[in-house]
Nucleic acid binder design. Structure first.
Lengths: 210, 210
DNA sequence: TGTAATCTTTACCAATTGATCAAATTTTTC
DNA sequence: GAAAAATTTGATCAATTGGTAAAGATTACA
């Protein structure tokens, strides 16, 4: 008896494994540029080099692909923030956080844009996750307030401090086209991330030292 | 003889004026959330409270509306940067720039998101403008390098400095949903922009003073 | 007030879209 | 090597999409 869709099988076949990966890879390419509504199954199928019905054999709907991608993304996206520990040196902790976020922007720009697309749309599918995000940020904010009270970090609004780290690092994924256009052929090479890291480190280190 | 489309008439009628404004207003709402491909004429027409053919009487195509909106946006978007003058006090000039960009994020969030959508898509329609942008940024970078040489501004990469201002201010338009979710009902009111301004001013002032 | 120009509506069209189905093909398993 | 399971394909569908044609309604203006 042929299963109607591959997704339900207990054990993933070799083919299933490979095709699903190819689809997700292609979908990430397409979704991250055009957003959910702006992307078509045909487009994704073509990018994955297979027919549309074939693709739909592995994922029931367009939304199923998108949901899976978003889910995977959210799972790892906040890891760097989770790693910020109260018992570390405040400025080093913040610098590490910036560095890690910048590495993510460099190594996973499509994931970053997928997330930004979702937020731009009003985050319709990740309301729960936003709630989790709030509690994580609140928790880390408390740590920072402690550092400030101890005179180990400049007094400021920790929420907005976190926003500014998100913004400055994510910028290099979302606005990549603009960044490259502005830097010009000479400075838009791979080294731009090192330049960014150097600049951001200085800005935040000087800006936040007590 | 009835003109096929209203746009070509020399003088704009009262009705033309009003309807075109209503369409652009509605289109800005829709495009800024869903992007170009994710938005439909029906959607825009409904938001503008008119029938689709009626809307298409004023704008030939969906793209015509989008082009006009993008054009208008780019026209005013860079004004704050243009206003940065070499003969001002470096830190005050930068602070004013931040304040103005933040006001734009507060007062014109839809325009900001429209722009971000366009950039996320790879900026297909604004290649020329990106070239103009580069020369403007290069020009202002030279001014900043002068300030640094004179010891009136901390030494850093001026391009990345400008990026960080764009990123931190634009963040409050693009990631508004996330910002509000994280701040929570207590602090997500209109005052969040004042908090942001206070924080950013401190960060950049301390981070960039020589 | 009459008429020409402008505006609006109804009906429509061809292309694209997300998705289905049964038949044909390939792969795995015994 | 045959049966069973998994995979692929081509044909198809209903809904949506961007856009048009033409007739009817309204407005501006002499």
């Amino acid at each position: 008896m042929a299963k109607p869709r591959a997704a339900e099988t207990r054990k993933r076949t070799r083919i299933q494994q490979e095709k699903e990966d190819r689809i997700l890879e292609a979908a990430l390419d397409v979704f991250s540029v055009h957003g959910f509504r702006g992307s078509t199954i045909d487009q994704i199928a073509k990018a994955a080099d297979m027919s549309k019905p074939n693709l739909l054999y592995y994922f029931r709907t367009k939304e199923a692909i998108h949901r899976l991608l978003i889910g995977r993304l959210l799972d790892t996206w906040l890891d760097p923030l989770r790693e910020m520990k109260a018992d570390g040196d405040p400025l080093s902790e913040i610098c590490s956080y910036i560095r890690r976020k910048l590495e993510m922007a460099r190594d996973y720009p499509r994931e970053g844009r997928l997330f930004t697309n979702e937020i731009l749309r009003g985050a319709p599918h990740i309301q729960d996750e936003l709630r989790d995000l709030k509690s994580l940020v609140d928790e880390k904010s408390k740590i920072m307030l402690g550092w400030m009270k101890d005179g180990r970090l400049a007094r400021c609004d920790p929420h907005h401090l976190i926003f500014s780290i998100w913004a400055t690092t994510q910028h290099y994924a979302d606005f990549d086209v603009q960044v490259r256009a502005v830097l010009g052929p000479g400075k838009a090479g791979a080294g731009r991330f090192d330049d960014a890291a150097r600049y951001l480190e200085k800005l935040f280190l000087e800006g936040l030292k007590p």
